[in-house]
Design a protein around this nucleic acid. Sequence first.
DNA 1: TGCCTCCAAT
Length: 636
Amino acid sequence: MTRIPSCSPIWLTSLSYCYFNPTSFSYVKQQSLPLPLHDFIKTRRLYNAFFCQTSRQFHADPTVQSLVSAVNFCSSTPLCRKIHAQVIKSLNYRDGFIGDRLVSIYAKFGCLDDAQILFDEMPNKDLVSWNSLISGFSRRGDLGKCLSSLCRMRSDMGMAPNEVTLISTISACTNTGAVDEGNYIHGLAVKMGLLSETKVVNALINMYGKFGYLDLASQLFKAVLVPNVVSWNSVLAIQIQNGFPEDGIEVFKLMSRAGLKPDQATVVTLLQGCADLGVGKLADAIHAYIFTCGLESDIPISTALLRFYAKSGRLHASYEIFREMKNPDRIAWTAMLAGYAVHGYGRGAIEFFDLMVKKGVEPDHVTFTHLLSACSHSGLVKEGRKYFEIMSSVYKVEPRLDHYSCMVDLLGRAGLLKDAHVLIESMPMEPNSGIWGALLNACRIYGDIELGNEVAERLFALNPSDSRNYIMLSNIYSAAGQWSDASKVRLLMKERGFVSNPGCSFIEHRSKIHRFVVGDQTHPDSDKIHKKLDELIEKIHKAGYVPRTEFVLHNVDEEVKQYLINKHSEKLAIAFGLLVTDSGRPIVITKNLRICGDCHGMAKFVSLTEKRSIIIRDSKRFHHFADGLCSCGDYW
DNA sequence: TGCCTCCAAT
C-alpha cells in the first residue's frame, strides 16, 4: 500500500477541487501549488490509499461523528465539495457510508461525472454504494447508465440487486417512457421474489399508470397484501392523470373507508382532480381539511390549491393563497403566473414575472412558457419578442418546442404570418405538429389560403391521424366561401376513416355533473332548459348580438346553423344564470380577445376536447370555463 | 446513522 505523505490542508483542499474539476487545473497552478499533470494522476492513487487507510482508522478518530452529521445535512454541491475535501484532509473515511452519501449528493445536484469518479475510486463498494450511484442516474433521467450499472453490478461483481435498486431503475423507466425496459425490470422483480415488497409494486403501479396501462396497474394494486398510503396515492394519481378524475375521487373514498389517513400527496393529487373536474364543493372540503390538519403552510399543497382557484376563475382567491405563502418556490411563482396568463392578464403576468426575478427566484423553461403564452393571448408582440430573446441571453434558458410554439402563436395571431413562418424555418430542432398547428390557426384567422394549404400539407405528413388539422383546413376554405374545397377535405377525412367528435359541454350543478352535446335532448330537464334558452336567446338578440357562423357549417340552412349554435354552450351557460350583459350588450371575454363575442369560438372553447378556457363576466363577477366546465361554484 | 415508491407550475 502506498504510504500517505504529509500534506498541508490547503494542498489537499486544492487537490479535491482539482480532482472534481480537472478543467480548473489552471486555478491550482495560479495558486503556485506544485501540482503538474503527472502529479495529478499520482494523486488519484494517493486518493485510493486514503480510502483504504482511513477505513481502518475510522473508529479511532473523534471527528468522524461531525463528518457524518455534516454529510447528512449536506444540501448543495459546493458544501459537498467542502466536506469531501475535509474527508480527505482528516483521513477519516470509511468506504461506504460517507462516500455513498457523497455519491448520491453529487448525483442529486447533477454532477454525475463527479459521482461516477468518486464511486469508481471507492475500494469496497457494497450494495448501498451501487444503489447510490444507480439512484443518482435515475434521478437525472439517465436510463442507459442505470441499466448498464445494474448489469455491471450483477455480472462483474456478482451482486444481486435489492428492492431499492429495482425501485430506482423502475423510476428511470417511468420517467423516460421506456416500456420494454420497464417490463424487463418487472420480470426481474418477479424472478428475484421482490414483488412482495410493497414499495417495488408501488413503483410498478406508477410506471404502468404513467404508460396508460390502467388494467395492469390495478391488477398489481389488487395483488398488494397491505397497500400503504403511497399505493393508494399512486392509484388515485393514475386515475386523475389519465383523465378520469371522477374515478379518482371514488378511489379516494375507498381509501378513506380502508382507514388510511390522507397525506400531503393525497391532498395535492385530489386538488389536481378537482381542478380538472371543477368540483368546487369537494375542493372546499379539502380546503377545510387542510386547515384542520395545519397543512396550509405546505408549499406543494398551497400551490395545488392556488392552481385550483386559478383554474376555477377565482384569481383573487388564488392570489390570496400565494400571498399567504411564506417562501413560495419557483413552482408556486410559476403557477401564479400561469393564473394570470390563462385569465388573459398579459401585463399582469409580465409585472409578476419582473417581481419574481426581483425577489431572486430563477425562472425556468415552464415559467417562460407561461410568460410567452400570456404575451400571446394579450397580443403583446413587442414584449413577447423581448422575453423570447432574453430568456436565453440573460436567463440561460434555451428555447424549447413550447416556446417556439408560443412565439408562432403570438406572431400568427398578430397577423405576422410571414414572421411566424420565418421563425419556424430558423428553429434549431424539427418543428412539431403543435407549431405548424399554431400557424395553421393563424392562417384560419387571417384567411390565408395559400399558406394554410402549405402548412396543412406539412401537418398531414407529420400527423396524418389528427382529425383537427383536416377540420381546420376545411374551416379555412369555408370561411373563404370555397365550399367545394372544404367538402373535398371533409371527404378526405371520411375516406381516411375519421369521425369528428362533436364538442361536449358539461356543467356542475348542485354537486352533479350535466353533460350536453349539440342537438342533444336527453337531459331530463331538456324541455325546461330549451324554453329558458329561447327566452334568453331572444333577449340577447334584442341586445344586438349576432353570432358569427361563416365557418361553422356549410351547406346547411342559415336557420339550422343558428339553431345548432344557439343550442350549444354559450346559450346553455346563459340559461344557467350567467346572463352575460354589460349595459345591455353581451360581453364575452376570452383569453384570446380576437374571438370575443364569437359564438362559435365560445362553443368551441367550452368544448371538452379543446382543453381551453374562457371567462364570462356578468355584472358581479367573472365566470371561468376550463376544460369544458364552468366551475365558478357560487353563482347558482 | 448511507440507497428507495406516490404529490405541486405546459
